[in-house]
Simulated scan of single mutants.
Amino acid sequence: MEILKHSRRIKELLDLKEDLVILIGDSGRQYIEQHKKDNKPQNGAYTYWNNTIAIIDEKLVGTLAHEMRHAYQYENKERYGYKFSRKTQVIVNWREVVKYIASAKERDANLFALKYLIKNTKNYLHILKYIFKCLDGYFSLCVVKCLKL
Rank of each mutant, 00 (worst) to 15 (best):
K59H: 12
Y116L: 04
L111H: 09
Y82Q: 11
G81F: 01
F84Q: 08
E106P: 05
I56P: 01
H66R: 14
Q73L: 02
V92M: 13
Y74A: 03
L111K: 14
K87T: 14
K115P: 00
I91P: 02
N76H: 15
A65W: 03
D57T: 08
E78N: 15
G62Q: 08
Y82T: 09
T121S: 13
V90D: 07
R86V: 06
Y80W: 15
K105E: 14
L64Q: 07
N120P: 03
V61G: 00
Y116M: 05
E78R: 13
K83T: 12
Y116D: 11
G62A: 11
T88Q: 15
E58A: 13
R95M: 03
E78I: 06
A102P: 03
Y100V: 02
V92A: 09
K105C: 01
D108Y: 06
L64P: 05
E58V: 00
A109E: 05
V92G: 14
N120M: 08
F112E: 09
K119A: 13
I101Q: 11
K59T: 10
V92I: 13
N120T: 05
D57H: 13
N76P: 05
K99I: 00
G81I: 03
N76C: 09
W94H: 10
A102G: 11
S85F: 08
Y74Q: 10
S85P: 03
Q73T: 07
Y80D: 07
Q73Y: 05
A65C: 06
G81Q: 05
L64A: 07
V61F: 11
A65D: 02
Q89Y: 09
V61W: 03
K83Q: 15
F112A: 02
T63A: 12
V61Y: 11
N93M: 02
K77G: 00
Y100F: 12
K115T: 07
L64V: 04
K59I: 00
E75Q: 14
I118L: 12
G62Y: 02
I55R: 05
E96Q: 15
